[in-house]
Design a protein around this nucleic acid. Sequence first.
DNA 1: GCAGAAATTTTACGCGCGAAAAATTTCAGT
DNA 2: ACTGAAATTTTTCGCGCGTAAAATTTCTGC
Lengths: 343, 343
Amino acid sequence: MADNKIRNMEEFAAVSGISRPTVSKYFNDPDSVRRTTRERIEKALERYDYRPNIFAMNQNRKLTKNVGIVVPYLADPFFAEIARQIEQRCIAAGFRPTLYSAHGDPALEKDILDSLVSLKPAGVLLAPLGRASDRSAIEKFCDDVPTVLFDSNLDDVGEAFVGSDNFSFVSQTVDYLTRTGEPPCFFEMRTPANPNANKRRLAFVEVMERRGLEPRIIKVEGEGWAFEEIGRDGALRVLETGGFPTNTILCSNDRLAIGLLAACYEKGFRVGRAEGCALRVASHDDHPFSRFTCPSLTTAAHDYDAVANCAFGTLAELIEGGGRFDTRTETLFSARLVLRASA
Amino acid sequence: MADNKIRNMEEFAAVSGISRPTVSKYFNDPDSVRRTTRERIEKALERYDYRPNIFAMNQNRKLTKNVGIVVPYLADPFFAEIARQIEQRCIAAGFRPTLYSAHGDPALEKDILDSLVSLKPAGVLLAPLGRASDRSAIEKFCDDVPTVLFDSNLDDVGEAFVGSDNFSFVSQTVDYLTRTGEPPCFFEMRTPANPNANKRRLAFVEVMERRGLEPRIIKVEGEGWAFEEIGRDGALRVLETGGFPTNTILCSNDRLAIGLLAACYEKGFRVGRAEGCALRVASHDDHPFSRFTCPSLTTAAHDYDAVANCAFGTLAELIEGGGRFDTRTETLFSARLVLRASA
DNA sequence: GCAGAAATTTTACGCGCGAAAAATTTCAGT
DNA sequence: ACTGAAATTTTTCGCGCGTAAAATTTCTGC
């Protein structure tokens, strides 16, 4: 391209022989101009590579093409993976996604939402911290910005929720474990940050009671998002003080399970369904690393693809519809049981 | 606050009894206005919560307060962690960081840089994909935007580089391993994407030869960023076809090691420095999960804190200095050996 | 080939703010 | 109190683009 520097849309309109506002229309929606006009613009575009000033665009536009993606803790590969999937769908649909992590900090989550407002995003996909979140701050944010919650639900906050059917997760793992061996006990944090954890515990109790089995729950101490460490420390303490009440342990999530497996390994307890194993361990989430634990982890998997698809699809629909839904929908995806070596 | 809605800086200037441009100066640098003026503005700010329109600000400003952070693969907790640290330093210094991941895709990396240009960032911290990167695209980008490379160096690209002294990493691990047992062989990908991998191999060869030992290298097949899988598959193949040439394996990085440990576990090879172990395994990076592998991984650790600090500090300096350094500096940090159970 | 409607383009204006130049105020030294 | 320079504030202009309304072109049906 003979890139005679184009400074602005005015100049670009001149060299392409079209008026500036028409060029503006083209950039907002190429299909809104006549085919012949579009072709002339695109031909000029090849010769002069010009791009509209993004700040000037967004200044006057009522609605930008920005989409915010907010996750509670990006160093967790689970969120990294789901964020990646959502990001790519945004791009494919012509939006400009921006990714934020609250890094486990409620104050930072609030700051992110604050600065997100001034970006006038067309919509936001928010996975809240959960219990620690400043609920009223999030509510206020959702009043200003069309928001779809995902992963972690807050009742009546946001225009919709897309997440997991925790009951399906737990019932499948419990089902499998009781069918193939001793019924499991449940291993979790005492004060989980994430509402999914509470739903999983409740599901565990319900499923076990339905079967006439006693739902035994092991709660370990620990705050924050260092789940592996909490799981390991907690499991070490249990193993050192009498051990688990059954030979089968169902962890609330994979990251706790990774910590628990580390503890078992340290203490010399062989984990798995094979001969000579002392314990069986299963879990939930299908964390990206759970294929590489020792032993590999039997777990109930999220359908990352479907969740990302639905979350973005719901947001797109919301944006189309002007930012409000008549009724708040909650879409829950079932788990897929993944059998590996640990149980 | 009696938030009588303030629409713009004009109105806010009116209610605070100051002229608009003075208010503008205040927002660009509160110390640039007289103390009495500043106090009047800040008093008004409490009553009327107003925030300047970020798009209008950036449209006319020659330099924004935006900082781009680009990493090759965010689902890798190593990058998630380093990005987190850098992010927080940006915020503390009054910048607006935005995080991007190339997700292992050179085309996406190029797209990110492209769209980053139009954000007129004050500076960018870029960890390139490495070998796969479109070097000329990155070079062109660095001409337009003050850029500091980190983690992964590209010769003569960007104004500075901050990374790791790979020789220090490898010499420490080799040193330790040879001192405490059989000399290691080196386990790596045949065609590593990251230049650090090449430097580590070269360092391994050099260190071994200095000791008069034969540098034996095991190369495994595989492309992309699924290092754990590549490590496991490669190790399985080795273990099934004669095994490793020594009982001590030094992995190029922790993620490969995680895969290798999974393979060893599957095949029943006990890893560690304790009695009865068949293999010792060590590695480099101190990946956030390497404390929770089975056994926990002996590794050469990055000083995440120092690297993040230096990378951002260098960028801040670069921005202060107008976006150019006289000479391109390369700052390398040494490793800290972390002894755990695997070797 | 023509009238009228529909689609498209052009005219005209304003968005909210940054920044240089001009005007004013402040302050030290006398 | 007075002068002059420095610090600060105000005047003025323009950035690059969106958008409603007006003007024009294109298209449809006869």
